[in-house]
Simulated scan of single mutants.
Amino acid sequence: MNTLDWEGKVGDEIRTVFGEHQVGLPQPETLLSVSQIDPSGFKSFVRETRAILLVQKGEKEGVVVKKNKYSAPQILVYATAKDDEGLINLIKTKGKDMMHTFQNADIKFLQSLFKKERLADSNFKTLKNLGISIDIPKRFKLVDDTGDFLWLRQHLKSGIARGDGTNNILIYSVPLEDETKVADNITAVRDTIGKKYIPGSKEGMYMITEQAYTPFTFETELDGKKAYETRGKWEVKNDFMAGPFLNYTIVDKKNNRLIVFEGFTYAPSVNKRDFVFELEAIAKSMKIK
Score class of each variant (00 low, 15 high):
168 N>T: 00
216 F>W: 03
142 L>Q: 15
156 L>G: 00
117 E>T: 11
139 R>H: 14
133 S>A: 08
41 G>W: 05
245 F>H: 00
279 L>T: 04
188 A>K: 08
199 P>H: 08
109 F>K: 10
212 A>W: 03
115 K>D: 06
218 F>I: 10
144 D>L: 13
264 F>Y: 15
124 F>H: 11
114 F>R: 07
231 R>L: 10
187 T>L: 02
203 E>T: 10
95 G>N: 12
148 D>S: 11
236 V>F: 07
163 G>Y: 00
82 K>H: 05
281 A>D: 01
231 R>W: 09
117 E>Y: 05
270 V>N: 15
126 T>H: 01
282 I>H: 02
135 D>F: 04
211 Q>E: 09
113 L>V: 14
63 V>Y: 06
149 F>Q: 04
209 T>S: 03
35 S>V: 15
120 A>W: 00
253 K>Q: 13
285 S>P: 11
191 D>S: 06
179 E>C: 09
19 G>S: 08
61 E>F: 03
234 W>M: 06
36 Q>M: 13
274 D>G: 04
151 W>L: 12
95 G>R: 13
52 I>G: 06
91 I>E: 02
35 S>Q: 14
56 Q>T: 12
115 K>I: 07
197 Y>M: 09
117 E>M: 05
180 T>G: 12
39 P>S: 02
102 F>S: 07
135 D>P: 05
263 G>Y: 01
53 L>Q: 07
223 D>Y: 10
144 D>N: 13
218 F>M: 10
142 L>R: 15
284 K>I: 04
218 F>W: 10
4 L>D: 14
201 S>D: 13
134 I>D: 08
180 T>R: 13
181 K>Q: 15
52 I>M: 06
264 F>Q: 01
22 Q>P: 03
281 A>Y: 03
277 F>I: 04
25 L>C: 04
115 K>F: 03
160 I>V: 15
233 K>N: 08
40 S>R: 15
123 N>S: 13
50 R>Q: 15
159 G>S: 07
13 E>T: 14
128 K>P: 08
71 S>T: 11
245 F>R: 02
29 E>T: 08
106 D>C: 02
150 L>N: 06
7 E>R: 12
48 E>T: 14
149 F>W: 04
228 Y>E: 04
175 P>I: 13
49 T>R: 12
14 I>W: 03
259 I>D: 00
208 I>M: 15
3 T>Q: 14
70 Y>K: 06
167 N>M: 07
257 R>H: 02
221 E>H: 13
130 L>K: 08
207 M>G: 08
231 R>K: 11
54 L>N: 02
240 F>Q: 11
159 G>W: 06
200 G>W: 03
52 I>F: 05
29 E>F: 05
70 Y>E: 07
13 E>D: 03
158 S>E: 15
143 V>M: 11
148 D>M: 06
201 S>Q: 12
173 S>N: 13
173 S>R: 11
160 I>K: 13
286 M>N: 00
238 N>R: 14
141 K>C: 00
256 N>V: 08
114 F>L: 04
93 T>L: 14
151 W>Q: 12
23 V>W: 04
18 F>N: 12
8 G>P: 09
223 D>W: 11
215 P>N: 03
44 S>F: 11
85 E>V: 09
105 A>L: 05
